[in-house]
Design a protein around this nucleic acid. Structure first.
Length: 657
DNA sequence: GACTTGTTGCTTTAGACAGCATGTC
DNA sequence: CTAAAGCAACAAGTC
C-alpha cells in the first residue's frame, strides 16, 4: 500500500515522500485497513520503531476536527511536537508542565501534544477545547498498568469518551500479553504485529559465547580487567570474566564493526563506572569520531561545573557516555543528540533510556536483569527488558539489530525462558488503589461531574478497570474514598442523610485544581495553620511542609548523614511544624527535612555544585526537587488564600525559587 | 618503615507527571 | 521472598 493511496492531502504525501516514506510498513497497512483514516478506533500493539508515529499522523491528519496526542513523557511530547510541526500547514501546540501554554490558548489548533496529566488537569480546570476534539491518539497505552499514572490515563480517557462519545481513539501500545482487552475496552479494532523494519536477534552471552535465537552464535574475547597479576596463574584464572568484563567486550566488539551500542545496567554508579572503564578502550578512535566527540564533550562541559558534568565530558571525549536521571536535562539531551549524530559510540544507561526518546543502536547489551526493590532482588519485567532490546537496529542504517543479555551458566535457561522466548506481562488496571481513587473521586466531585456516589461510579464506568469487574466492583472502594475525603475536609455531604449531595469544600476545590493529591492538600493546609501560629515561620518552615507531602519526591538520607541531619532538625525545631517526637515515620520525616534544607540553601544562594557535593545527590535530582517545589509552593499559596491564612514566608520562598 | 595487596564489613540501590496569574522598589 | 557491587577501614604481606 502506498502513502499516495491514503486520503491525505497532497502536501502531506509530498512531505512524507521527501523523507523517503512512500510505501507503508505492514503494521501501518493493517492500521489503515482497520480504519485509522476513517475515524475508526484502533489499538496498535506493535514493536518500537515499526512506524507508530506514522499511524498516529495518519489518524490525526485525516480526522474530521482537532486532534490530541497524549504522551507519557515530556521529552517524548517534545519529540512528537517537532514531528508534527515539520508537517506543512499543520498548526500544532504543545502542553506539558514545563512548557508555557496557558488555558484557552490551546483551542483552535489542529493538533495538541500533551502529557496525560496535563490533559487530566485541563479537564479539571474546565478547559473547553477538549470537547471539540475529533481524535485522540494515546502513545504507550500499556502504561495503563503503571502504579500512579495508569489510573490517571484511564480516567482521562474515560472522561474524554464520556463527554464526546463519537471521538476517535487510536491507542499505541508496546507488545503486551492482553492487547485484546485494551482494544475491547476502547471498542477498537486490534492490530497486532511483530514486524520490525530491521531484524532483531536476541541472545544470551555466557563466558564470551553468545547464542542468538536464530541459532547463530558469536564469540567475544573478554579482557579480564583485574587479572593483571598473571604470572603464577593459580588463583585469579579460576572465575574468568565477570558480567562487566563481558559487557565491555560486547561493546568493544560491536564498535569494532562500526556499530553503536547501548548498555543497560542496574544503578547510576554502575552506569558511570562502566562508561569510565570503556573510556579506556579507545572507542572514539575505533569509530573515527574523534573531533565530533570533542565538540560534544566541550558543550557538555559548559553546562555546569559539577563533578557529574565533568566526568560525563571526560567520557564523551573518549566516545562514551552515561545516562541516568541524576543528569540534568541538558546533559541528557546532549548525550541523546550526540548518539543520534554518531558522535558517541556507546551509552551506558539505567532504564531511563529504555522508555525515553528515540535512540536506536546496532547492539544493545543488557548486563543486569535484576533490580533491588526495597526488600529483595527481583527480575525485571519482561516488558521492560523487551523495551531495552527493542532499541537495537537502526532502520536504514544497520543490517540487523542485536540484543544481548549477559548471564551466567546458571541463569542462561532462565534468561531464555523469561526474556528471549517469554511473553511480556499483561496490563492490569491499578485504579483500585485507594490513593488513586481518592484523587480521582475528588476530581470528579470538584469539577462538578458527580454529586453522588452513584454518579461517581458512573464516571468510572468507562474505565479499563470497570471493563473487568464492572464499576460496581468499585462501589465499596469509592465509599471508602468518599469517607476519607470527608474526614480530610475535602468534600462535604450537603442535605439529608438520605438525599445528600457531595460537594467539594473550597480546600477540596483548590486541591483538585492545583493538581495535588488530597493528602498533599490536607498536609499543606495543616502546615500553614501551624505556621501561621508560629512566632518565626521562615522559608525553611514552608519547605518542611511541602517536602512532607506525597507529591514531593523523597531524597535519600544516607546513613552517614543521619546523625547530622538529626542535629540540624533539633536545632531548627522552632522553625519546623512537626515536633521531633510526632512523626509516625520519623525516617521519612527526616528525609523531608533534608529536602527542605537543600531547598532552603538553594534559595539562600548555594550553587548546584555546592549542594550536589554536600548532600550526595545528582544535579538532575536537585533540578527536579526545585521544579516540584515551585509547583507545590504555588499550590500552598493558593491554599493559603482559600483558607484565609497568611504566611508571608510562602510568597517569599516562591519568589526566590 | 613505606608501600602494596587482601579482607572484611558497611553502605547503597531506577524513574518522573503536575499550576498559575501578576505584580515590585 | 532470592542480592550484589563499591568502597573505606583495617590487616597482612612485601620490598
Amino acid at each position: 500500500m502506498r502513502v499516495r493511496s491514503l486520503p491525505l492531502p497532497e502536501r502531506f504525501v509530498d512531505h512524507f515522500a521527501d523523507r523517503g516514506i512512500r510505501e507503508l510498513y505492514p503494521p501501518q497497512v493493517a492500521a489503515v485497513e482497520a480504519g485509522v483514516c476513517d475515524g475508526a478506533n484502533v489499538v496498535a500493539a506493535v514493536p518500537t520503531a515499526s512506524g507508530k508515529t506514522f499511524i498516529a499522523q495518519s489518524a490525526l491528519l485525516t480526522a474530521d476536527g482537532p486532534g490530541l496526542y497524549v504522551c507519557p513523557l515530556r521529552a517524548l511530547a517534545r519529540e512528537k511536537y517537532e514531528a508534527f510541526a515539520a508537517l506543512p500547514g499543520v498548526d500544532v501546540a504543545i502542553s506539558t508542565g514545563d512548557f508555557e501554554a496557558t488555558g484557552e490558548e490551546l483551542a483552535g489548533h489542529d493538533v495538541v501534544v500533551a502529557t496525560s496529566e496535563k490533559v487530566d488537569s485541563a479537564i479539571r480546570n474546565g478547559a473547553e477545547w477538549v470537547d471539540d476534539l475529533a481524535c485522540v491518539v494515546v502513545d504507550e497505552v500499556h502504561l495503563l498498568g503503571a502504579e500512579r499514572r495508569g489510573p490517571t490515563l484511564e480516567v482521562t480517557l474515560a472522561t474524554l469518551r464520556r463527554r464526546n462519545p463519537s471521538i476517535q481513539i487510536v491507542a499505541l501500545s508496546a507488545t503486551v500479553d492482553n492487547p485484546e482487552e485494551i482494544a475491547d475496552w476502547l471498542d477498537a479494532t486490534l492490530v497486532e504485529s511483530e514486524w520490525r523494519p530491521v531484524d532483531l536477534r536476541t541472545g544470551v552471552c555466557v563466558d564470551g559465547e553468545v547464542a542468538f535465537d536464530d541459532d547463530t552464535t558469536r564469540h567475544v574475547e573478554a579482557g579480564d580487567s583485574d587479572a593483571e597479576s598473571g604470572a603464577d596463574g593459580r588463583d585469579a584464572a579460576e572465575d574468568g570474566p565477570d558480567a562487566t568484563d563481558l559487557a565491555a567486550a560486547l561493546v568493544v566488539d560491536a564498535v569494532a564493526e562500526g556499530g553503536q551500542c547501548l548498555a543497560f545496567v542496574r544503578s547510576r554508579t554502575e552506569a558511570a563506572a562502566l562508561a569510565e572503564r570503556l573510556a579506556g578502550e579507545g572507542l572514539a578512535d575505533r569509530m573515527g569520531i574523534g573531533s565530533a566527540a570533542t565538540t560534544v564533550a566541550d558543550d557538555v562541559a559548559d553546562i555546569d561545573e559539577t563533578v557529574t558534568g565533568r566526568d560525563l565530558a571526560d567520557c564523551l571525549r573518549a566516545g562514551v557516555a552515561f545516562h541516568h536521571a541524576g543528569l540534568r536535562a541538558g546533559h541528557r539531551a546532549a548525550v541523546e543528540a550526540a548518539f543520534r549524530d554518531r558522535a558517541v559510540a556507546c551509552i551506558c544507561a539505567t532504564p531511563t533510556l529504555a522508555a525515553g526518546v528515540n535512540v536506536p543502536a546496532r547492539r544493545v547489551v543488557v548486563r543486569d536483569q535484576k533490580r533491588y526493590t526495597g526488600s529483595s532482588m527481583e527480575w525485571l519485567p519482561t516488558l521492560e527488558v523487551h523495551q531495552m532490546c527493542g532499541r537495537a537496529g537502526r532502520p536504514g542504517l544497520d543490517p540487523y539489530g542485536e540484543a544481548i543479555l549477559v548471564g551466567e551458566a546458571s541463569t542462561r535457561e532462565e534468561l531464555v525462558d523469561r526474556y528471549v522466548e517469554g511473553d511480556p506481562e499483561a496490563v492490569e488496571s491499578k485504579l483500585a488503589d485507594p490513593a488513586s481513587l481518592r484523587t480521582h473521586v475528588l476530581s470528579a466531585v470538584a469539577s462538578g461531574f458527580a454529586e453522588t456516589e452513584a454518579e461517581i461510579l458512573d464516571v468510572l464506568d468507562g474505565t479499563f478497570y470497570a471493563r473487568e469487574t464492572g464499576a460496581g466492583g468499585l462501589a465499596d472502594a469509592v465509599a471508602v474514598a468518599v469517607d476519607d475525603l470527608v474526614d480530610a475536609g475535602m468534600v462535604r455531604r450537603r442535605g439529608d442523610v438520605e438525599t445528600y449531595r457531595l460537594v467539594a469544600t473550597p480546600v477540596g476545590e483548590t486541591t483538585s485544581r492545583q493538581y495535588v493529591r488530597p493528602e498533599t492538600g490536607a498536609r499543606i493546609v495543616a502546615g500553614l495553620r501551624t505556621a501561621a501560629g508560629m512566632a518565626n515561620a521562615t522559608t525553611l518552615t514552608v519547605f518542611e511542609v511541602i517536602c512532607d507531602t506525597p507529591d514531593m519526591q523523597d531524597t535519600y538520607l544516607g546513613n552517614r548523614e543521619r546523625a547530622e541531619m538529626y542535629r540540624f532538625a533539633r536545632s531548627k525545631a522552632a522553625q519546623l511544624t512537626t515536633g521531633m517526637s510526632e512523626p509516625d515515620d520519623f525516617e521519612g520525616w527526616l528525609e523531608s527535612v533534608k529536602t527542605a534544607r537543600v531547598l532552603d540553601e538553594w534559595i539562600g544562594g548555594a550553587t548546584v555544585e555546592e549542594l550536589v557535593e554536600a548532600y550526595r545527590l545528582g544535579p538532575g535530582d536537585l533540578d527536579s526537587r526545585v521544579e516540584r517545589a515551585e509547583w507545590l509552593l504555588s499550590a500552598a499559596e493558593a491554599l493559603a488564600d482559600t483558607v484565609g491564612v497568611s504566611v508571608p514566608a510562602v510568597t517569599r520562598a516562591r519568589s526566590r525559587i
